[in-house]
Design a protein around this nucleic acid. Structure first.
Length: 448
DNA sequence: TACTGCTGAACATGCGAACA
DNA sequence: TGTTCGCATGTTCAGCAGTA
């Protein structure tokens, strides 16, 4: 019998406070070290490690579970996919997985081809004070952190160009003798930290951050001696400010980001916001809009976000993830084509496994809309059953009745819209946002 | 700029073992 | 027998790089 939990209770209480984060570099190194020794460490080892690296035991447990699951998944994929990778099969992949990133498919540079032992020896030479976080039983380190000299190179380059191109990063990794992934991830970490500081402290903070990461007062004049081929030419300055601060209008609520591979000196400062979950009424509204369109416009998403009190990025991510899940399920459905009616109902199934009446109805609408999208491979996976005719819009829904009434109320008050009671619930938002929201109601809701 | 694929972290659920 | 715990498995949210 699984332990009875009340996810809605603690989630509602914690979602507003807990921030998603990625484990810091020192935590990941320590976790991976223990994992390499034992995929199933005893409880006292996990507890000791958790205490040592400042994590909760349950978080450590979850990490090990995810790590094992990830490894199993990769093992399965490797077995299924290739014969070419057999050459490395005899080697434990845990370190590669630790280094893995979305760029793992990119060509590796520097010491990427070094065996694990060389990596460990390199790390032990370059990583500052490993005993700080490593369990006593751990005798080596897998992570090839930049040396102090390499760090100066990276900082100097980052000061010139926080957004180097892939070619620049490859060239830089070659020049300073560091793996491409480490270089790339280091830049991610710095950009995330810069954004976080900018959020919290404004431009002054960002400037202070730049000043902090600046190795010295000397200007960039190439890299320190000791590496052949230097000085490395400074990259052309790019105007990638939009990438640094996308959607400046929402910068106040932008999530701070960090990668798990950052330098330990900085990683402790870069705690990413923790995962949140939409509340029930928010989820209902998202699902309702999804049944209308899988690709809502920016205006629609903004209006919905305003109405629900959600961050526009959360709304966008929700739609993106749902589309992705749909495609994933479609692919899976194609692979085992005998099972053709399971992919939709599972998406919004209640925890007990039974779909509510609304969910079932929504799923039918969901299916219908997906069928109308001829471009989506999601649609290709489904042959609509005759009994799954398009469901009528849930006009009887209390929420839609309410929205409809509000939209109608707005129409009657167009001569003096702002000071009317119909806008009372939007009093905390800007006039433009209120107009956008009501426009959304009129065009999306009212047209139902 | 918006999208997708990949991935990590957190969470939910079901199952079996251990124990009182 | 009921409870607790650990685990495997699957899902969901969100960040990043790449791309059209």
């Amino acid at each position: 019998m699984p332990p009875v939990k009340a996810p809605s209770m603690d989630s509602t209480a914690d979602n507003k406070q807990k921030k998603r984060h990625r484990h810091s570099t020192e935590q990941l190194v320590a976790l991976n070290e223990l994992y390499e020794q034992d995929e199933h460490p005893a409880l006292h080892l996990r507890t000791a490690l958790a205490t040592k690296i400042g994590m909760e035991t349950k978080t450590v447990n979850a990490w090990f579970q995810n790590k094992r699951a990830s490894n199993r998944k990769r093992t399965r994929n490797n077995k299924n996919s290739s014969t070419a990778a057999r050459t490395a099969d005899s080697q434990d992949h845990s370190e590669d997985e630790y280094y893995a990133s979305p760029e793992s498919a990119a060509p590796m540079h520097g010491d990427a081809s070094l065996p694990a032992s060389d990596l460990a020896s390199h790390a032990s030479m370059t990583y500052p004070d490993p005993s700080y976080f490593a369990p006593d039983s751990i005798t080596h380190l897998p992570m090839a952190y930049p040396s102090m000299e390499q760090m100066e190179d990276l900082r100097a380059y980052f000061h010139v160009s926080p957004h180097p191109s892939k070619d620049d990063k490859e060239l830089l990794s070659d020049r300073i003798g560091l793996r491409y992934q480490i270089v790339s991830l280091w830049f991610q970490e710095q950009r995330s930290e810069m954004r976080r500081r900018k959020e919290e402290e404004g431009d002054y903070g960002a400037a202070a951050f730049y000043a902090e990461i600046e190795p010295s007062s000397e200007l960039f004049d190439g890299f320190p001696s000791g590496q052949p081929g230097r000085p490395y030419p400074p990259p052309p300055l790019r105007t990638r400010s939009s990438s640094v601060t996308p959607s400046s209008g929402s910068s106040s609520s932008r999530r701070s980001g960090s990668t798990p591979y950052g330098h330990p000196v900085l990683s402790s400062m870069s705690q990413r916001a923790r995962r949140t979950r939409p509340e029930a009424h928010q989820l209902d509204a998202l699902k309702e809009l999804f049944t209308r369109t899988q690709h809502p416009s920016l205006e629609e998403r903004t209006a919905l976000a305003l109405e629900l009190g959600m961050d526009i990025r959360k709304v966008t991510n929700w739609f993106r993830n749902l589309r992705q899940t749909s495609r994933k399920r479609a692919r899976k459905s194609r692979s085992d084509d005998e099972e053709d009616d399971d992919m939709y109902t599972s998406r919004f199934r209640s925890p007990s496994g039974s779909a509510s009446a609304f969910d079932q109805d929504m799923d039918r609408v969901y299916k219908t809309y997906s069928e109308m999208d001829s471009d989506d491979d999601y649609q290709e996976a489904v042959t609509p059953s005759p009994e799954h005719s398009p469901s009528p819009p849930p006009e009887s829904s209390p929420r839609y009745r309410r929205l409809h009434a509000e939209a109608m109320n707005f129409e009657h008050d167009t001569l003096s819209p702002i000071d009317k009671a119909a806008f009372a619930r939007y009093a905390h938002i800007k006039y433009e946002d209120a107009m956008l929201l009501l426009d959304f109601h009129q065009h999306i809701v009212h047209l139902r």
